[in-house]
Amino acid sequence: RFRDHHAFLVRLHLDHYDQLTDSVGQLDARIEEAMAPFRPALDLLDTIPGINRAVAEVIIAETGGDMARFASARHLASWAGVCPGHHESAGRTKNTKVRPGNPYLKGALGLAAFGAVRTKDTYLQARYKRLTARRGPLRALVAVEHSIITAIWHMLTDNVTYRELGGAYFTQRDPERATRRAINALNQLGYTVTLNPRGATA
């Protein structure tokens, strides 16, 4: 039942596919050429969990790769739209929705954050888990985006690679708080907890 008309339609689709593939190849070559001067910066960004080459290229394209135009990491985060807004009323400051920013950079940071929170034993994953319980997953994700853009500013300003703090960073930074949280969690499950320092005799 495959006739000449069907062959014509199939050939039409295959030719269109070949044209699109050729266009994609040309665009990839053009992007590679345009990004050649920024290769060192791309290599630095590639060390951040969650950031791949495509995301790094968007970050460079939108920021220009020059952090001198941003006075601080906070200025860059605000321009990217990953800083929570603040509303002050009667002397009290309340968090509001994030401020609008560069949509393309914000989209790239969103992809990076989604990837970062799925990495194992990393600071960004630990930060996400720590904030999700108190602020919800969406706000926690914005906080991870903020951490990523802050790291980007420092890395490109000082020309250094990403320094991984590890998944146990918050526990090591404040062990007493981590202990209290663990005890409270066990108490809510109906357990009575007695702490004995390691090495202590019964």
Score class of each variant (00 low, 15 high):
residue 198 R to H: 10
residue 40 P to Y: 01
residue 18 D to E: 12
residue 30 R to S: 02
residue 29 A to K: 07
residue 186 L to R: 14
residue 182 A to S: 10
residue 112 A to D: 01
residue 122 T to G: 14
residue 4 D to M: 03
residue 39 R to E: 06
residue 151 A to V: 15
residue 51 I to C: 07
residue 1 R to W: 03
residue 105 L to Y: 06
residue 123 Y to I: 02
residue 46 D to M: 03
residue 17 Y to F: 03
residue 95 N to W: 10
residue 154 H to I: 00
residue 11 R to A: 15
residue 26 Q to S: 00
residue 23 S to A: 10
residue 156 L to I: 05
residue 129 K to W: 03
residue 41 A to T: 06
residue 196 N to S: 12
residue 16 H to M: 09
residue 36 A to K: 00
residue 175 P to F: 08
residue 171 T to E: 12
residue 141 L to W: 06
residue 86 H to Y: 09
residue 166 G to Y: 01
residue 201 T to F: 00
residue 79 W to H: 05
residue 180 R to E: 15
residue 142 V to T: 13
residue 139 R to I: 06
residue 165 L to G: 01
residue 56 A to T: 02
residue 55 V to I: 12
residue 40 P to S: 00
residue 197 P to L: 04
residue 35 M to D: 00
residue 46 D to Q: 06
residue 140 A to D: 15
residue 33 E to H: 05
residue 109 L to E: 14
residue 39 R to Q: 08
residue 199 G to N: 14
residue 70 F to I: 06
residue 17 Y to I: 04
residue 93 T to S: 12
residue 183 I to V: 15
residue 110 G to H: 12
residue 37 P to E: 12
residue 75 H to Q: 09
residue 41 A to F: 07
residue 114 F to R: 08
residue 166 G to C: 02
residue 200 A to L: 08
residue 191 Y to K: 11
residue 105 L to A: 10
residue 175 P to C: 09
residue 51 I to S: 11
residue 108 A to Q: 05
residue 81 G to P: 11
residue 110 G to N: 07
residue 25 G to Y: 06
residue 105 L to C: 10
